[in-house]
Nucleic acid binder design. Structure first.
Length: 377
DNA sequence: AATGCACACAACCGCAGAGAT
DNA sequence: GATCTCTGCGGTTGTGTGCAT
């Protein structure tokens, strides 16, 4: 039996998301948490298919997503993991928690695949199958066994992640829907205790960046007394953002008033290593303001964002799972005494750094020679 | 300045698995 | 057990942008 489409084909908007749509989506998720994607279009008035909402969230708006250029280390990791796991991008992404599978997939298709192909041409190697983890081994049973082992390894990793998530859920009672946080293993740069506070505010950061880009394109952004968002394309340099509201009176209607909700969403501090604070705020008239010298692109710092909370924000109560509360909870999580399992996980995280090196080694043994990978760089 | 091309990336599509009914 | 629904995943496409001609 065929599956019905996730949404009505008629009247569904496609194509790039506008900042307003992002705001509406984030506002809704902020209040209700991710999940129940099917209800989001009806509850928010978004003319988007539920699937599109989910993808937009997971690939772009979700907290903790690192955008911008891939580091050399990440690149190597991807190459080796691809050799190890094949095109299982989600599994690969689990080793690079701040990257989405879509991001990795795109990066592979646009950069690394060519790099490898060129490298193969130079070396005259032609035996490594593209898109699969297995090289053209002489023994098929070896391939099957290898694939099975690799899958098992990934499954173990996934199970550990699930355990990590479960632990964080235990300490954060309002995290029922918070399964979209990146996996706890961040072997890239940060120690496990630092990368924990991934917050919704980070997703506000993503939107803030987006808005800043948008405003760069439309420098004459103006305020308006309109109580509803009216999206004027950046072509006509006219931005009018007052409040996000939905025509749908049903439960979950997004209604953010100027100076309150949006302020809460877009005003935050970034405390990264350089202690550079960044903020995008909305004043009472619905105007956005940003620091002039804010570098909004290619921000590779996984900064810890804390929302500037205003004392009286009725729509953003803790039980609603708002940004600042979750951020607070995550911060508290760091101070929770370690349980045995947590200790084990921390040890595991430390061991994972070593595992990376081993992965490199395993990758070598699975169709990619040391020369092949090293010559890439 | 206009055109064509290549590239990068966001978004879409379809399938499959898992859980609910 | 059959069916329905939701979600995750990987492949592919569409579109914007920059560069070369």
């Amino acid at each position: 039996m065929g599956r019905p489409p996730c949404c009505e084909k008629s009247g569904v908007k496609k194509g790039p998301w506008t900042p307003e749509e992002d705001i509406i989506l984030v506002s809704y998720i902020q209040e209700h948490g991710p999940g129940n994607w099917r209800n989001i279009p009806t509850n928010t008035g978004l003319l988007r298919c539920s699937k599109s909402c989910r993808l937009r969230w997971t690939n772009y708006l979700r907290p903790g997503i690192k955008r911008g250029n891939f580091t050399e280390h990440e690149e190597k990791m991807i190459i080796h993991l691809q050799a190890l796991l094949g095109n299982r991008w989600a599994a690969i992404a689990s080793y690079l928690p701040q990257r989405t599978d879509n991001d990795i997939k795109n990066y592979w298709n646009t950069h690394l695949k060519k790099k490898l192909n060129n490298n193969k041409k130079v070396e005259g190697h032609d035996d490594r199958q593209e898109g699969t983890s297995a090289s053209s081994s002489s023994s098929q049973s070896k391939i099957i066994k290898g694939q099975w082992e690799r899958r098992l390894q990934t499954d173990i990793h996934t199970a550990k992640q699930a355990l990590c998530d479960a632990l964080s859920l235990d300490t954060t009672p309002n995290n029922k829907n918070n399964n979209n946080n990146p996996p706890p293993h961040d072997q890239d740069q940060q120690p496990p205790s630092v990368q924990t506070p991934t917050t919704y505010a980070s997703s506000a950061e993503n939107i803030a960046k987006l808005l800043q880009n948008w405003m760069k394109n439309s420098p004459k952004s103006t305020s308006s007394s309109s109580s509803k968002i009216t999206y004027m394309s950046s072509l006509n340099n006219n931005l009018s953002i007052g409040a996000v509201s939905s025509s749908s009176p049903s439960e979950g209607t997004v209604n953010v008033t100027p100076g309150q909700g949006l302020d809460s969403i877009f005003s935050f501090n970034s405390s990264n290593n350089s202690d550079v604070s960044q903020s995008v705020s909305v004043d009472e008239g619905g105007n956005f303001s940003t620091p002039e010298n804010h570098n909004n692109n290619n921000n590779n710092n996984a900064g810890i964002y804390q929302v500037e909370s205003k004392p009286n924000l009725p729509d953003f109560k803790p039980e609603n799972g708002n940004f600042q509360e979750e951020s607070k909870q995550n911060m508290e999580t760091q101070q929770v005494p370690l349980t045995m399992l947590e200790k084990w996980l921390l040890e595991d995280a430390n061991a994972q750094a070593e595992q990376e090196d081993q992965l490199m080694g395993i990758g070598m043994g699975m169709g990619m020679t040391l020369a092949e990978t090293n010559d890439l760089f």
